[in-house]
């Protein structure tokens, strides 16, 4: 499904990723873990096109993604959420989710200006679709709220709804539960399992190990920009290199 091959990325002279290679299998939830600064978000940004890798290739179902502009990738089925939320604060919940439907139809300027019946009909359909998605997330009551007045947990779910409404084939989740309380975390966990059950391919970056261990089929560990281990949750838990990456340095500085 998704093939990451030899991805390298430098910021100035600092290597953020070097020669990272792994695969996400279709229908699997693959987790990407590692200490802070390991390059997890950088990799997500390379896949979604916000950053261009210096070396290596990214393939999605045989299509080469690297080199394509970021705005083309949603059309190929790549959806994502952001680590620190990237909602449109002054738009309503519904409008935010509607923005996620961009791949369902590019509006032409002339048609938008004239607001012909066909255009209106199409926009009504998009609206219905967005409302259905809000319903699935229990956000119907708040559809007309500007997102700036929502709780953090609600905002995270709006962002997830926005990423899912265009029915992506690959969903990139960058720390979906960072900053959430236990209850909200469990809610997102349930959501991820539901999507997994529906056959969506997910690449999850997360620090919450309980969540990672409970939802992932496969885990890739990054440390200082390198993929140091990969395997099932059980294998990763007992891998000495992983334990060292997480704990070793702490004992070295202690």
């Amino acid at each position: 499904m998704l093939r990451i091959e030899g991805i390298g990325k430098h910021f100035g002279g600092v290597p953020a990723l070097s020669d990272v290679t792994f695969r996400c299998r279709e229908g699997w939830t693959t987790a990407l873990i590692g200490p802070n600064g390991a390059g997890k978000s950088t990799l997500i940004n390379c896949i979604s096109g916000i950053l261009a890798p210096d070396t290596g290739q990214i393939h999605l179902q045989g299509l080469r993604l690297d080199g394509l502009p970021a705005h083309r990738r949603p059309f190929l089925g790549v959806g994502r959420t952001f680590q620190n939320l990237a909602l449109f604060p002054r738009l309503t919940v519904l409008e935010n989710v509607l923005c996620g439907l961009t791949p369902q139809g590019e509006p032409s300027m002339l048609r938008s200006l004239l607001r012909l019946p066909a255009t209106r009909h199409r926009e009504r359909l998009l609206r219905l679709k967005a409302l259905e998605m809000l319903d699935a997330f229990g956000l119907t009551d708040k559809s007309q709220w500007p997102v700036s007045i929502l709780s953090y947990g609600d905002r995270k779910r709006v962002e997830l709804a926005r990423a899912l409404v265009s029915e992506p084939r690959l969903l990139l989740l960058d720390e979906p539960v960072a900053g959430l309380n236990a209850e909200e975390t469990a809610r997102i966990g349930t959501e991820i399992r539901r999507l997994h059950g529906a056959g969506l391919t997910i690449l999850l970056v997360e620090h919450d190990m309980d969540l990672v261990m409970s939802v992932s089929d496969h885990i890739v560990v990054l440390d200082s920009g390198r993929a140091i281990a990969s395997g099932t949750p059980g294998q990763i838990r007992s891998d000495p290199r992983v334990i060292e990456a997480y704990l070793g340095r702490m004992s070295a500085t202690a």
Binding site: S48, G49, I50, P69, A70, H71, R72, R73, P74, F75, R80, F82, A86, L87, F88, P89, R90, L91, C99, G100, T102, P103, R162, S166
Partner: peptide
């Protein structure tokens, strides 16, 4: 409101 987010949703 957020160019990066807009771009990653498919808006040119």
């Amino acid at each position: 409101q957020n160019e990066t987010a807009a771009e990653s949703l498919g808006i040119q």
